[in-house]
Design a protein around this nucleic acid. Structure first.
Lengths: 260, 260
DNA sequence: TCCAAGGCATAACGTATGTTATGTGGCAAG
DNA sequence: CTTGCCACATAACATACGTTATGCCTTGGA
Protein backbone atom coordinates (compact mmCIF):
# COMPACT_ATOMS: atom_id res chain seq x y z
CA UNK A 1 0.00 0.00 0.00
CA UNK A 2 1.25 3.48 -0.83
CA UNK A 3 0.07 6.73 0.67
CA UNK A 4 -0.86 10.00 -0.92
CA UNK A 5 1.83 12.62 -0.28
CA UNK A 6 -0.76 14.68 1.57
CA UNK A 7 -0.95 12.17 4.37
CA UNK A 8 -3.10 14.14 6.67
CA UNK A 9 -5.61 15.04 4.03
CA UNK A 10 -5.72 11.48 2.76
CA UNK A 11 -6.31 9.77 6.08
CA UNK A 12 -7.43 12.04 8.85
CA UNK A 13 -9.76 13.95 6.58
CA UNK A 14 -11.27 10.71 5.40
CA UNK A 15 -12.03 9.84 8.97
CA UNK A 16 -13.42 13.22 9.91
CA UNK A 17 -15.56 13.39 6.79
CA UNK A 18 -17.29 10.30 8.08
CA UNK A 19 -18.80 12.46 10.78
CA UNK A 20 -19.40 15.87 9.23
CA UNK A 21 -18.45 17.74 6.06
CA UNK A 22 -15.36 19.88 6.32
CA UNK A 23 -15.28 23.40 4.96
CA UNK A 24 -12.57 24.31 2.47
CA UNK A 25 -10.83 26.34 5.15
CA UNK A 26 -10.80 23.50 7.61
CA UNK A 27 -9.54 21.11 5.02
CA UNK A 28 -6.79 23.54 4.11
CA UNK A 29 -5.77 24.00 7.73
CA UNK A 30 -5.26 20.27 8.11
CA UNK A 31 -3.54 20.06 4.80
CA UNK A 32 -1.04 22.75 5.82
CA UNK A 33 -0.06 21.09 9.08
CA UNK A 34 3.68 20.36 8.75
CA UNK A 35 4.52 16.69 9.18
CA UNK A 36 7.75 14.78 9.44
CA UNK A 37 7.45 11.26 8.09
CA UNK A 38 9.40 8.48 9.78
CA UNK A 39 9.72 4.89 8.62
CA UNK A 40 9.82 2.23 11.31
CA UNK A 41 10.65 -1.44 11.48
CA UNK A 42 8.65 -3.91 13.53
CA UNK A 43 8.77 -3.51 17.32
CA UNK A 44 10.29 -0.07 17.45
CA UNK A 45 9.29 2.22 20.26
CA UNK A 46 7.68 5.47 19.15
CA UNK A 47 6.91 7.21 22.43
CA UNK A 48 7.69 5.97 25.90
CA UNK A 49 5.50 6.18 28.98
CA UNK A 50 6.35 9.11 31.22
CA UNK A 51 7.63 11.36 28.49
CA UNK A 52 6.35 14.89 27.99
CA UNK A 53 6.46 15.12 24.20
CA UNK A 54 6.18 18.32 22.20
CA UNK A 55 4.93 16.43 19.19
CA UNK A 56 2.28 13.87 18.41
CA UNK A 57 1.98 11.41 15.58
CA UNK A 58 -0.30 9.83 13.05
CA UNK A 59 -0.13 6.28 11.71
CA UNK A 60 0.26 6.40 7.93
CA UNK A 61 1.05 2.81 7.02
CA UNK A 62 1.21 -0.40 9.04
CA UNK A 63 0.11 -1.04 12.59
CA UNK A 64 1.07 0.33 15.98
CA UNK A 65 0.12 -0.39 19.55
CA UNK A 66 -0.30 1.37 22.87
CA UNK A 67 0.95 -0.75 25.73
CA UNK A 68 1.80 -0.80 29.40
CA UNK A 69 3.90 -3.15 31.49
CA UNK A 70 3.07 -4.57 34.89
CA UNK A 71 5.62 -4.64 37.69
CA UNK A 72 6.88 -8.07 36.66
CA UNK A 73 7.34 -7.00 33.07
CA UNK A 74 4.27 -8.54 31.50
CA UNK A 75 2.96 -6.51 28.61
CA UNK A 76 -0.66 -5.58 27.95
CA UNK A 77 -1.54 -3.87 24.71
CA UNK A 78 -4.30 -1.38 25.46
CA UNK A 79 -4.99 -0.24 21.92
CA UNK A 80 -4.17 -1.18 18.35
CA UNK A 81 -3.72 1.53 15.78
CA UNK A 82 -4.27 1.34 12.06
CA UNK A 83 -3.52 3.85 9.30
CA UNK A 84 -5.39 7.09 9.92
CA UNK A 85 -5.28 6.82 13.70
CA UNK A 86 -3.80 9.45 15.97
CA UNK A 87 -2.76 7.24 18.88
CA UNK A 88 -1.56 9.88 21.31
CA UNK A 89 -3.90 12.77 20.69
CA UNK A 90 -4.25 12.83 24.47
CA UNK A 91 -0.91 14.64 24.74
CA UNK A 92 -2.79 17.70 23.59
CA UNK A 93 -4.10 18.11 27.15
CA UNK A 94 -2.20 15.62 29.30
CA UNK A 95 1.41 16.65 29.67
CA UNK A 96 2.95 13.34 30.59
CA UNK A 97 2.01 10.36 28.53
CA UNK A 98 0.56 7.40 30.43
CA UNK A 99 1.41 4.52 28.09
CA UNK A 100 4.03 3.59 25.54
CA UNK A 101 3.63 3.35 21.79
CA UNK A 102 5.40 0.98 19.43
CA UNK A 103 5.15 -0.29 15.90
CA UNK A 104 3.97 -3.90 15.66
CA UNK A 105 4.63 -4.20 11.94
CA UNK A 106 6.80 -2.30 9.49
CA UNK A 107 5.16 1.07 9.53
CA UNK A 108 5.26 4.70 8.58
CA UNK A 109 4.25 7.47 10.95
CA UNK A 110 3.99 11.24 10.65
CA UNK A 111 5.05 13.55 13.47
CA UNK A 112 3.60 17.00 13.90
CA UNK A 113 4.06 19.73 16.51
CA UNK A 114 1.45 19.83 19.25
CA UNK A 115 1.61 23.61 19.16
CA UNK A 116 0.63 23.56 15.50
CA UNK A 117 -2.35 21.40 16.30
CA UNK A 118 -3.29 23.62 19.22
CA UNK A 119 -3.32 26.58 16.90
CA UNK A 120 -5.63 24.75 14.51
CA UNK A 121 -7.94 23.89 17.39
CA UNK A 122 -8.11 27.50 18.52
CA UNK A 123 -8.92 28.81 15.06
CA UNK A 124 -11.26 26.02 14.03
CA UNK A 125 -13.59 25.04 16.86
CA UNK A 126 -15.29 22.42 14.71
CA UNK A 127 -11.98 20.69 14.11
CA UNK A 128 -11.24 20.91 17.80
CA UNK A 129 -14.55 19.20 18.48
CA UNK A 130 -13.78 16.60 15.85
CA UNK A 131 -10.46 15.74 17.49
CA UNK A 132 -12.15 15.61 20.85
CA UNK A 133 -14.63 13.23 19.32
CA UNK A 134 -11.79 11.05 18.08
CA UNK A 135 -10.45 10.70 21.61
CA UNK A 136 -13.96 9.86 22.83
CA UNK A 137 -14.25 7.07 20.30
CA UNK A 138 -10.90 5.74 21.52
CA UNK A 139 -12.36 5.71 25.02
CA UNK A 140 -15.41 3.84 23.80
CA UNK A 141 -13.16 1.21 22.28
CA UNK A 142 -11.30 0.95 25.56
CA UNK A 143 -14.57 0.28 27.36
CA UNK A 144 -15.32 -2.54 24.97
CA UNK A 145 -11.82 -3.89 25.52
CA UNK A 146 -12.38 -3.98 29.26
CA UNK A 147 -15.50 -6.04 28.63
CA UNK A 148 -13.69 -8.25 26.17
CA UNK A 149 -10.76 -8.96 28.45
CA UNK A 150 -12.82 -9.09 31.62
CA UNK A 151 -15.80 -11.18 30.67
CA UNK A 152 -15.31 -13.20 27.50
CA UNK A 153 -13.46 -16.50 27.09
CA UNK A 154 -10.42 -16.69 24.86
CA UNK A 155 -12.23 -17.98 21.78
CA UNK A 156 -14.88 -15.25 21.86
CA UNK A 157 -12.32 -12.66 22.80
CA UNK A 158 -10.12 -13.34 19.80
CA UNK A 159 -13.09 -13.45 17.44
CA UNK A 160 -14.18 -10.10 18.81
CA UNK A 161 -10.81 -8.52 18.27
CA UNK A 162 -10.68 -9.77 14.70
CA UNK A 163 -14.15 -8.39 14.03
CA UNK A 164 -13.10 -5.00 15.34
CA UNK A 165 -10.03 -5.10 13.18
CA UNK A 166 -11.94 -5.91 10.05
CA UNK A 167 -14.50 -3.17 10.54
CA UNK A 168 -11.93 -0.53 11.34
CA UNK A 169 -9.75 -1.50 8.41
CA UNK A 170 -12.73 -1.51 6.10
CA UNK A 171 -13.54 2.03 7.22
CA UNK A 172 -10.20 3.19 5.83
CA UNK A 173 -10.41 1.07 2.72
CA UNK A 174 -7.89 -1.60 3.63
CA UNK A 175 -10.19 -4.60 3.20
CA UNK A 176 -10.83 -6.46 0.00
CA UNK A 177 -13.27 -9.35 -0.18
CA UNK A 178 -13.40 -9.69 3.56
CA UNK A 179 -9.67 -10.20 3.68
CA UNK A 180 -6.79 -7.98 4.72
CA UNK A 181 -3.07 -7.84 5.37
CA UNK A 182 -2.40 -8.97 8.87
CA UNK A 183 1.29 -8.67 9.73
CA UNK A 184 0.69 -9.10 13.46
CA UNK A 185 2.29 -11.87 15.47
CA UNK A 186 0.31 -14.16 17.72
CA UNK A 187 2.33 -12.84 20.64
CA UNK A 188 1.00 -9.35 19.93
CA UNK A 189 -2.55 -10.58 19.62
CA UNK A 190 -2.09 -12.39 22.92
CA UNK A 191 -0.89 -9.20 24.59
CA UNK A 192 -3.90 -7.37 23.20
CA UNK A 193 -6.40 -9.89 24.50
CA UNK A 194 -4.78 -10.68 27.82
CA UNK A 195 -4.08 -14.34 27.14
CA UNK A 196 -0.84 -16.27 26.71
CA UNK A 197 0.79 -16.73 23.34
CA UNK A 198 0.32 -20.48 23.53
CA UNK A 199 -3.36 -20.13 24.17
CA UNK A 200 -3.67 -17.63 21.34
CA UNK A 201 -2.32 -20.32 19.06
CA UNK A 202 -5.00 -22.68 20.37
CA UNK A 203 -7.77 -20.12 19.93
CA UNK A 204 -6.77 -19.31 16.36
CA UNK A 205 -6.61 -22.99 15.55
CA UNK A 206 -10.14 -23.45 16.85
CA UNK A 207 -11.38 -20.48 14.83
CA UNK A 208 -9.70 -21.90 11.76
CA UNK A 209 -11.19 -25.33 12.28
CA UNK A 210 -14.64 -23.82 12.76
CA UNK A 211 -14.26 -22.11 9.40
CA UNK A 212 -14.45 -18.61 10.86
CA UNK A 213 -11.08 -17.42 9.64
CA UNK A 214 -8.44 -18.40 7.13
CA UNK A 215 -4.83 -17.47 7.77
CA UNK A 216 -2.23 -17.48 5.05
CA UNK A 217 1.03 -15.97 6.22
CA UNK A 218 0.50 -12.35 7.19
CA UNK A 219 -2.94 -12.37 5.63
CA UNK A 220 -6.35 -13.02 7.11
CA UNK A 221 -9.64 -13.85 5.40
CA UNK A 222 -13.11 -14.06 6.86
CA UNK A 223 -15.24 -16.47 4.82
CA UNK A 224 -18.44 -15.98 6.84
CA UNK A 225 -18.76 -12.56 8.44
CA UNK A 226 -22.06 -13.27 10.18
CA UNK A 227 -20.65 -16.34 11.87
CA UNK A 228 -17.56 -14.51 13.11
CA UNK A 229 -19.70 -11.65 14.42
CA UNK A 230 -21.80 -14.17 16.27
CA UNK A 231 -18.82 -16.04 17.67
CA UNK A 232 -17.23 -12.78 18.80
CA UNK A 233 -20.35 -11.31 20.43
CA UNK A 234 -19.58 -8.32 18.27
CA UNK A 235 -21.68 -5.20 17.75
CA UNK A 236 -19.78 -2.46 15.88
CA UNK A 237 -21.85 0.28 17.43
CA UNK A 238 -19.16 1.11 19.98
CA UNK A 239 -16.85 2.17 17.15
CA UNK A 240 -19.12 5.15 16.48
CA UNK A 241 -18.35 5.05 12.79
CA UNK A 242 -19.88 7.58 10.48
CA UNK A 243 -22.82 6.29 8.50
CA UNK A 244 -20.77 6.12 5.33
CA UNK A 245 -17.95 4.19 6.93
CA UNK A 246 -20.26 1.75 8.68
CA UNK A 247 -22.24 0.85 5.58
CA UNK A 248 -22.89 -2.85 5.52
CA UNK A 249 -21.81 -3.36 9.11
CA UNK A 250 -24.42 -1.71 11.27
CA UNK A 251 -27.25 -3.90 12.51
CA UNK A 252 -30.71 -2.42 12.36
CA UNK A 253 -32.50 -0.51 15.10
CA UNK A 254 -32.23 2.75 17.03
CA UNK A 255 -33.45 2.45 20.63
CA UNK A 256 -35.81 5.08 21.92
CA UNK A 257 -34.53 8.38 23.31
CA UNK A 258 -33.78 9.05 26.96
CA UNK A 259 -36.47 9.76 29.50
CA UNK A 260 -35.93 10.55 33.19
CA UNK B 1 -22.07 13.68 53.76
CA UNK B 2 -24.04 16.73 52.65
CA UNK B 3 -23.37 18.80 49.58
CA UNK B 4 -23.14 22.51 49.14
CA UNK B 5 -26.22 23.82 47.32
CA UNK B 6 -23.93 24.99 44.52
CA UNK B 7 -23.09 21.47 43.53
CA UNK B 8 -21.21 22.25 40.42
CA UNK B 9 -19.06 24.87 42.04
CA UNK B 10 -18.38 22.62 45.01
CA UNK B 11 -17.28 19.56 43.08
CA UNK B 12 -16.46 20.16 39.46
CA UNK B 13 -14.68 23.39 40.23
CA UNK B 14 -12.66 21.65 42.88
CA UNK B 15 -11.54 19.14 40.30
CA UNK B 16 -10.76 21.69 37.63
CA UNK B 17 -8.86 23.91 40.04
CA UNK B 18 -6.52 20.98 40.53
CA UNK B 19 -5.28 21.61 37.00
CA UNK B 20 -5.42 25.35 36.44
CA UNK B 21 -6.89 28.39 38.15
CA UNK B 22 -10.30 29.45 36.95
CA UNK B 23 -11.11 33.07 36.23
CA UNK B 24 -14.07 34.62 37.98
CA UNK B 25 -16.03 34.53 34.74
CA UNK B 26 -15.36 30.86 34.18
CA UNK B 27 -16.30 30.04 37.72
CA UNK B 28 -19.50 32.02 37.33
CA UNK B 29 -20.41 30.26 34.10
CA UNK B 30 -20.17 26.90 35.79
CA UNK B 31 -22.01 28.18 38.80
CA UNK B 32 -24.90 29.36 36.64
CA UNK B 33 -25.38 26.06 34.84
CA UNK B 34 -28.93 24.95 35.71
CA UNK B 35 -29.03 21.53 37.37
CA UNK B 36 -31.83 19.22 38.37
CA UNK B 37 -30.93 17.11 41.38
CA UNK B 38 -32.23 13.55 41.55
CA UNK B 39 -31.93 11.17 44.48
CA UNK B 40 -31.36 7.50 43.65
CA UNK B 41 -31.46 4.24 45.54
CA UNK B 42 -28.90 1.51 45.01
CA UNK B 43 -28.91 -0.24 41.63
CA UNK B 44 -31.04 2.23 39.76
CA UNK B 45 -30.36 2.78 36.10
CA UNK B 46 -29.44 6.35 35.19
CA UNK B 47 -28.85 6.18 31.46
CA UNK B 48 -29.19 3.14 29.25
CA UNK B 49 -26.90 2.07 26.44
CA UNK B 50 -28.16 3.09 23.01
CA UNK B 51 -30.00 6.18 24.16
CA UNK B 52 -29.44 9.60 22.62
CA UNK B 53 -29.80 11.78 25.69
CA UNK B 54 -30.24 15.56 25.65
CA UNK B 55 -28.82 15.85 29.11
CA UNK B 56 -25.79 14.68 30.99
CA UNK B 57 -25.17 14.25 34.68
CA UNK B 58 -22.79 14.73 37.54
CA UNK B 59 -22.36 12.50 40.59
CA UNK B 60 -22.97 14.56 43.71
CA UNK B 61 -23.12 11.94 46.45
CA UNK B 62 -22.56 8.21 46.49
CA UNK B 63 -21.16 5.97 43.79
CA UNK B 64 -22.18 5.09 40.25
CA UNK B 65 -20.90 2.75 37.57
CA UNK B 66 -20.64 2.50 33.81
CA UNK B 67 -21.30 -1.02 32.63
CA UNK B 68 -21.93 -3.19 29.61
CA UNK B 69 -23.43 -6.65 29.23
CA UNK B 70 -22.15 -9.50 27.10
CA UNK B 71 -24.48 -11.54 24.91
CA UNK B 72 -25.11 -14.02 27.69
CA UNK B 73 -25.98 -11.33 30.17
CA UNK B 74 -22.76 -11.17 32.14
CA UNK B 75 -22.00 -7.69 33.40
CA UNK B 76 -18.69 -5.88 33.26
CA UNK B 77 -18.32 -2.57 35.01
CA UNK B 78 -16.04 -0.40 32.88
CA UNK B 79 -15.79 2.58 35.22
CA UNK B 80 -16.60 3.56 38.77
CA UNK B 81 -17.72 7.09 39.50
CA UNK B 82 -17.34 9.04 42.71
CA UNK B 83 -18.70 12.44 43.73
CA UNK B 84 -17.46 15.13 41.36
CA UNK B 85 -17.31 12.84 38.34
CA UNK B 86 -19.14 13.51 35.09
CA UNK B 87 -19.55 9.92 33.88
CA UNK B 88 -21.13 10.56 30.50
CA UNK B 89 -19.39 13.71 29.32
CA UNK B 90 -18.85 11.80 26.08
CA UNK B 91 -22.44 12.52 25.07
CA UNK B 92 -21.24 16.01 24.28
CA UNK B 93 -19.84 14.66 21.01
CA UNK B 94 -21.13 11.10 20.64
CA UNK B 95 -24.83 11.06 19.97
CA UNK B 96 -25.66 7.57 21.07
CA UNK B 97 -24.30 6.40 24.36
CA UNK B 98 -22.21 3.22 24.27
CA UNK B 99 -22.62 1.95 27.83
CA UNK B 100 -25.16 2.05 30.63
CA UNK B 101 -24.92 3.96 33.88
CA UNK B 102 -26.34 2.94 37.23
CA UNK B 103 -26.05 3.84 40.88
CA UNK B 104 -24.22 1.24 42.96
CA UNK B 105 -25.00 2.87 46.29
CA UNK B 106 -27.63 5.33 47.45
CA UNK B 107 -26.67 8.37 45.51
CA UNK B 108 -27.50 11.87 44.36
CA UNK B 109 -26.93 13.06 40.82
CA UNK B 110 -27.41 16.38 39.03
CA UNK B 111 -28.72 16.55 35.48
CA UNK B 112 -27.93 19.43 33.18
CA UNK B 113 -28.75 20.17 29.55
CA UNK B 114 -26.06 19.29 27.04
CA UNK B 115 -26.94 22.42 25.09
CA UNK B 116 -26.17 24.52 28.14
CA UNK B 117 -22.80 22.88 28.46
CA UNK B 118 -22.13 23.32 24.75
CA UNK B 119 -22.80 27.00 25.13
CA UNK B 120 -20.31 27.23 27.98
CA UNK B 121 -17.71 25.41 25.89
CA UNK B 122 -18.18 27.81 23.01
CA UNK B 123 -17.81 30.89 25.17
CA UNK B 124 -15.05 29.59 27.40
CA UNK B 125 -12.41 27.70 25.42
CA UNK B 126 -10.39 27.01 28.53
CA UNK B 127 -13.33 25.30 30.15
CA UNK B 128 -13.89 23.35 26.97
CA UNK B 129 -10.29 22.21 27.12
CA UNK B 130 -10.71 21.33 30.78
CA UNK B 131 -13.70 19.12 30.05
CA UNK B 132 -11.85 17.52 27.21
CA UNK B 133 -9.04 16.85 29.63
CA UNK B 134 -11.47 15.19 31.99
CA UNK B 135 -12.53 12.75 29.29
CA UNK B 136 -8.87 12.07 28.52
CA UNK B 137 -8.19 11.19 32.14
CA UNK B 138 -11.15 8.81 32.00
CA UNK B 139 -9.53 7.18 28.99
CA UNK B 140 -6.24 6.87 30.85
CA UNK B 141 -8.04 5.11 33.68
CA UNK B 142 -9.62 2.77 31.15
CA UNK B 143 -6.19 1.88 29.83
CA UNK B 144 -5.04 0.99 33.31
CA UNK B 145 -8.20 -1.08 33.78
CA UNK B 146 -7.42 -3.06 30.64
CA UNK B 147 -4.00 -3.83 32.10
CA UNK B 148 -5.51 -4.66 35.46
CA UNK B 149 -8.11 -7.03 34.09
CA UNK B 150 -5.89 -8.45 31.38
CA UNK B 151 -2.62 -9.08 33.13
CA UNK B 152 -2.91 -9.14 36.92
CA UNK B 153 -4.11 -11.97 39.14
CA UNK B 154 -7.18 -11.51 41.30
CA UNK B 155 -5.33 -10.57 44.47
CA UNK B 156 -3.25 -7.87 42.80
CA UNK B 157 -6.20 -6.73 40.75
CA UNK B 158 -8.39 -6.07 43.75
CA UNK B 159 -5.59 -4.36 45.64
CA UNK B 160 -5.06 -2.12 42.62
CA UNK B 161 -8.71 -1.17 42.41
CA UNK B 162 -8.80 -0.29 46.11
CA UNK B 163 -5.70 1.86 45.72
CA UNK B 164 -7.30 3.73 42.86
CA UNK B 165 -10.41 4.23 44.90
CA UNK B 166 -8.55 5.61 47.86
CA UNK B 167 -6.53 8.08 45.82
CA UNK B 168 -9.52 9.34 43.88
CA UNK B 169 -11.64 9.70 47.00
CA UNK B 170 -8.84 11.51 48.78
CA UNK B 171 -8.65 13.97 45.89
CA UNK B 172 -12.24 15.05 46.63
CA UNK B 173 -11.79 15.00 50.37
CA UNK B 174 -13.70 11.84 51.17
CA UNK B 175 -10.90 10.03 53.02
CA UNK B 176 -10.08 10.36 56.69
CA UNK B 177 -7.16 8.56 58.25
CA UNK B 178 -6.75 6.28 55.25
CA UNK B 179 -10.33 5.09 55.65
CA UNK B 180 -13.50 5.82 53.74
CA UNK B 181 -17.15 4.89 53.33
CA UNK B 182 -17.38 1.94 51.05
CA UNK B 183 -21.00 1.01 50.36
CA UNK B 184 -20.13 -1.23 47.42
CA UNK B 185 -21.06 -4.88 47.30
CA UNK B 186 -18.56 -7.60 46.52
CA UNK B 187 -20.63 -8.46 43.48
CA UNK B 188 -20.04 -4.97 42.11
CA UNK B 189 -16.34 -5.15 42.84
CA UNK B 190 -16.27 -8.49 41.07
CA UNK B 191 -17.95 -6.99 38.02
CA UNK B 192 -15.43 -4.18 38.03
CA UNK B 193 -12.42 -6.49 38.16
CA UNK B 194 -13.68 -9.22 35.87
CA UNK B 195 -13.70 -11.99 38.46
CA UNK B 196 -16.55 -13.96 40.06
CA UNK B 197 -18.25 -12.82 43.24
CA UNK B 198 -17.06 -15.92 45.07
CA UNK B 199 -13.49 -15.28 44.11
CA UNK B 200 -13.82 -11.65 45.12
CA UNK B 201 -14.75 -12.89 48.58
CA UNK B 202 -11.60 -15.02 48.60
CA UNK B 203 -9.40 -12.16 47.43
CA UNK B 204 -10.73 -9.76 50.04
CA UNK B 205 -10.23 -12.38 52.73
CA UNK B 206 -6.62 -12.79 51.68
CA UNK B 207 -6.07 -9.04 51.70
CA UNK B 208 -7.62 -8.87 55.15
CA UNK B 209 -5.48 -11.69 56.47
CA UNK B 210 -2.35 -10.06 55.06
CA UNK B 211 -3.23 -6.92 56.98
CA UNK B 212 -3.62 -4.79 53.87
CA UNK B 213 -7.23 -3.78 54.44
CA UNK B 214 -9.77 -3.73 57.23
CA UNK B 215 -13.45 -3.99 56.38
CA UNK B 216 -16.12 -3.00 58.84
CA UNK B 217 -19.52 -3.04 57.18
CA UNK B 218 -19.64 -0.50 54.41
CA UNK B 219 -16.38 0.99 55.55
CA UNK B 220 -12.84 0.31 54.48
CA UNK B 221 -9.56 1.15 56.17
CA UNK B 222 -6.02 0.86 54.85
CA UNK B 223 -3.59 0.38 57.74
CA UNK B 224 -0.45 0.30 55.59
CA UNK B 225 -0.69 2.30 52.40
CA UNK B 226 2.77 1.41 51.13
CA UNK B 227 2.07 -2.29 51.45
CA UNK B 228 -1.24 -2.03 49.60
CA UNK B 229 0.37 0.00 46.83
CA UNK B 230 3.02 -2.67 46.52
CA UNK B 231 0.53 -5.52 46.51
CA UNK B 232 -1.59 -3.75 43.90
CA UNK B 233 1.27 -2.83 41.57
CA UNK B 234 -0.16 0.66 41.82
CA UNK B 235 1.29 3.88 40.45
CA UNK B 236 -1.21 6.78 40.66
CA UNK B 237 0.38 8.60 37.77
CA UNK B 238 -2.27 7.40 35.34
CA UNK B 239 -4.90 9.35 37.28
CA UNK B 240 -3.28 12.59 36.11
CA UNK B 241 -4.21 14.35 39.31
CA UNK B 242 -3.30 17.96 39.82
CA UNK B 243 -0.28 18.51 42.01
CA UNK B 244 -2.45 19.69 44.88
CA UNK B 245 -4.76 16.72 44.74
CA UNK B 246 -1.96 14.21 44.43
CA UNK B 247 -0.02 15.49 47.40
CA UNK B 248 1.34 12.61 49.40
CA UNK B 249 0.59 10.03 46.73
CA UNK B 250 2.97 10.69 43.89
CA UNK B 251 6.21 8.74 43.88
CA UNK B 252 9.37 10.62 42.96
CA UNK B 253 10.92 10.98 39.53
CA UNK B 254 10.22 12.56 36.17
CA UNK B 255 11.60 10.56 33.22
CA UNK B 256 13.55 12.44 30.59
CA UNK B 257 11.76 14.20 27.74
CA UNK B 258 11.08 12.71 24.31
CA UNK B 259 13.71 12.42 21.67
CA UNK B 260 13.24 11.02 18.17
C1' DT C 1 -42.22 -9.42 65.80
C1' DC C 2 -41.56 -12.01 62.04
C1' DC C 3 -40.32 -12.94 57.45
C1' DA C 4 -38.01 -12.40 53.03
C1' DA C 5 -34.16 -10.81 50.56
C1' DG C 6 -29.69 -9.88 49.91
C1' DG C 7 -24.86 -9.70 51.17
C1' DC C 8 -21.30 -12.57 52.64
C1' DA C 9 -18.53 -16.80 53.79
C1' DT C 10 -17.02 -21.32 52.81
C1' DA C 11 -16.53 -25.93 50.76
C1' DA C 12 -16.27 -29.29 46.89
C1' DC C 13 -15.51 -29.83 42.41
C1' DG C 14 -14.71 -28.79 37.40
C1' DT C 15 -12.20 -26.39 33.80
C1' DA C 16 -10.21 -22.83 31.07
C1' DT C 17 -6.05 -21.14 30.78
C1' DG C 18 -0.98 -20.61 32.04
C1' DT C 19 3.66 -22.74 31.96
C1' DT C 20 7.38 -25.27 30.28
C1' DA C 21 9.29 -27.82 26.82
C1' DT C 22 10.37 -29.46 22.22
C1' DG C 23 10.18 -29.59 17.20
C1' DT C 24 9.31 -27.52 12.69
C1' DG C 25 9.63 -24.29 8.86
C1' DG C 26 10.65 -19.80 6.91
C1' DC C 27 13.61 -16.06 6.48
C1' DA C 28 17.51 -12.88 6.99
C1' DA C 29 22.40 -12.18 7.67
C1' DG C 30 26.82 -13.67 6.91
C1' DC D 1 24.94 -22.48 1.49
C1' DT D 2 25.01 -22.28 6.19
C1' DT D 3 23.64 -20.46 10.52
C1' DG D 4 20.72 -18.65 13.71
C1' DC D 5 16.57 -16.48 14.89
C1' DC D 6 11.79 -16.13 15.23
C1' DA D 7 7.00 -17.28 14.56
C1' DC D 8 4.24 -21.01 15.15
C1' DA D 9 2.46 -25.59 16.56
C1' DT D 10 1.70 -29.06 19.90
C1' DA D 11 2.01 -31.87 24.09
C1' DA D 12 2.16 -32.66 29.18
C1' DC D 13 1.40 -30.81 33.25
C1' DA D 14 0.11 -27.24 36.88
C1' DT D 15 -3.14 -23.97 38.82
C1' DA D 16 -5.94 -20.00 39.39
C1' DC D 17 -10.31 -19.26 38.96
C1' DG D 18 -15.40 -20.36 37.95
C1' DT D 19 -19.52 -22.87 39.36
C1' DT D 20 -22.78 -24.72 42.33
C1' DA D 21 -24.40 -25.30 46.71
C1' DT D 22 -25.33 -24.39 51.52
C1' DG D 23 -25.68 -21.68 55.67
C1' DC D 24 -25.34 -17.50 58.43
C1' DC D 25 -26.23 -12.82 59.40
C1' DT D 26 -28.07 -8.32 58.78
C1' DT D 27 -31.51 -5.34 57.20
C1' DG D 28 -35.87 -3.53 56.12
C1' DG D 29 -40.69 -4.00 55.34
C1' DA D 30 -45.19 -5.91 56.68
Amino acid sequence: MTVDPNFLSALMILKLEGVFTLTGEERQALHDLPMRVVVLKTNQDIVHIGECPLQSFLVLEGFASSYKLTADGVRQIVALHIPGDAPDLQTLHLKRIDCSFASISPCKVGFFQLDDLRRICERHPRLSAAFWRETLVDASILREWVVNVGRRDAYTRVAHLLCEFLVRLKAVGLVENSAFDFPITQANLADATGISAVHMSRALKALREDGLIQTRRMHLAVPDWAKLVNAGDFDPFYLHLGVNAAAGFRPAPQPKAAAL
